Lab assay of single mutants.
Amino acid sequence: SDIKVHVGDITVELHNVSEEFARLVEEALRLGLNEEQAKEWAHKALH
């Protein structure tokens, strides 16, 4: 599904992702990663 993740003043739109993936992206953003890094990190975490 499509999910918007908000962290501080950052909003990341995720398309066709699981809630778990979105949660991992949100966690990575909170750790200070940028959007691209957060998506990559979440992807690796799920595989």
Rank of each mutant, 00 (worst) to 15 (best):
D9M: 13
E26L: 11
A45Y: 14
L46K: 01
N16H: 09
I3E: 07
V25L: 07
I3K: 03
A42C: 01
N34F: 05
H15G: 10
L31T: 11
D9H: 11
I10G: 03
K4D: 08
L29V: 05
V5Y: 03
N34A: 09
E13F: 05
R30H: 15
A22M: 05
A42L: 02
E40V: 11
A42W: 01
G32I: 00
L29S: 02
D2S: 14
H6G: 08
H47N: 13
V17F: 04
H15V: 12
T11M: 12
H15C: 03
V7P: 05
E20W: 09
K39A: 05
K39Q: 09
I10K: 04
D9S: 13
E19V: 15
L33C: 07
K4M: 14
W41S: 08
L46C: 03
G8D: 08
A42V: 03
V17Y: 06
H43F: 15
E19Q: 14
E35M: 10
R30N: 11
H47Q: 13
E40A: 10
V5R: 00
I3W: 11
L14Y: 03
N16I: 05
D2P: 14
N34M: 08
N16R: 02
S18E: 06
A28V: 01
A28S: 03
I10R: 02
R30V: 10
R30Q: 12
K39W: 08
V12Y: 02
H6L: 07
S18K: 07
A28P: 00
E36S: 12
L14K: 03
L24I: 04
D2N: 13
H15M: 10
E20F: 10
Q37W: 03
R30G: 10
N34H: 05
G32P: 00
H47C: 07
E20N: 09
E13D: 11
H43W: 13
N16L: 07
S1V: 11
G8Y: 03
E26W: 07
E26G: 12
A28G: 12
A22K: 06
G32F: 02
K44D: 12
A45Q: 14
H15Y: 06
A28T: 00
D9F: 09
A45P: 01
E35R: 07
K4P: 10
K39N: 04
V25R: 02
V5H: 04
E20Y: 11
H6M: 12
W41H: 08
L14V: 04
A42M: 01
E26N: 06
E19L: 15
H15E: 07
R30I: 13
I3N: 08
V17T: 09
K44V: 13
L33A: 08
V12T: 05
L24W: 08
F21D: 00
V12G: 04
V12L: 10
A22I: 07
N34G: 11
E20D: 13
D9P: 08
I10C: 03
T11D: 06
A22T: 05
S1N: 13
L31M: 13
V17K: 06
E36A: 01
A38F: 01
R23Q: 12
R30M: 13
K4C: 07
W41E: 07
L31E: 10
V17N: 05
F21I: 04
G8N: 07
A28D: 00
H47W: 07
K4W: 12
K39G: 02
H43C: 06
S1K: 10
A22C: 05
R23H: 12
L24R: 08
K4L: 15
L24A: 10
L33M: 15
Q37C: 07
A42D: 00
E19S: 11
E19D: 08
E20T: 11
W41T: 05
E26K: 09
L46S: 12
F21K: 00
N34I: 04
G8F: 04
I10V: 12
F21S: 00
N34K: 09
S18A: 04
E19A: 12
E27R: 09
H6K: 03
A42S: 02
I3V: 09
F21N: 01
A42I: 03
S18D: 06
E36C: 03
F21Y: 15
